[in-house]
C-alpha cells in the first residue's frame, strides 16, 4: 500500500536518498525525481520516490479552503 505520509530527505547519494519519517529512516531510490535537495519532502512508494511534495501548493490549497468553507449558507440547515 502507498505510504500516505511524505518523508523528509536528509541525505542524497547518486540515485539514492535517505528519507526520514519522523525519526524512522529509510533508503529510497530517486530515479524519477529531478532537482531533489536535502530538506525536500518526497512521497515514497515501494522504495522509490514517486513525487516531490510541493510545499507551496500545500499552502495554497490550505488557503483555498477558506474560500470553499466560507461560502456556506447557514439558513439551509434550518429549513
Amino acid at each position: 500500500m502507498c505510504l500516505a505520509i511524505p518523508g523528509k530527505v536528509v541525505e542524497i547519494r547518486d540515485n539514492l536518498a535517505i528519507v526520514d519519517y519522523g525519526g524512522v529512516r529509510r533508503e529510497a531510490r530517486i530515479d524519477f525525481i529531478r532537482e531533489l535537495k536535502v530538506g525536500d519532502y518526497v512521497i515514497v512508494h515501494t522504495g522509490f520516490a514517486i513525487e516531490k511534495m510541493d510545499e507551496e501548493a500545500a499552502k495554497r490549497s490550505i488557503e483555498a479552503w477558506d474560500e470553499l468553507l466560507s461560502s456556506d449558507e447557514p439558513h439551509i440547515l434550518e429549513d
Binding site: 530515479d31 524519477f32 525525481i33 514517486i50 510541493d54 500545500a58 495554497r60 490549497s61
Partner: peptide, 16 residues
C-alpha cells in the same frame, strides 16, 4: 491533491 499531483504527472516515470 495539488501538493503532489501535476497535470502531466511524472513524465520521467511515464517515459521509462
Amino acid at each position: 491533491y495539488t501538493r503532489a499531483v501535476k497535470y502531466k504527472g511524472n513524465e520521467e516515470a511515464q517515459k521509462k
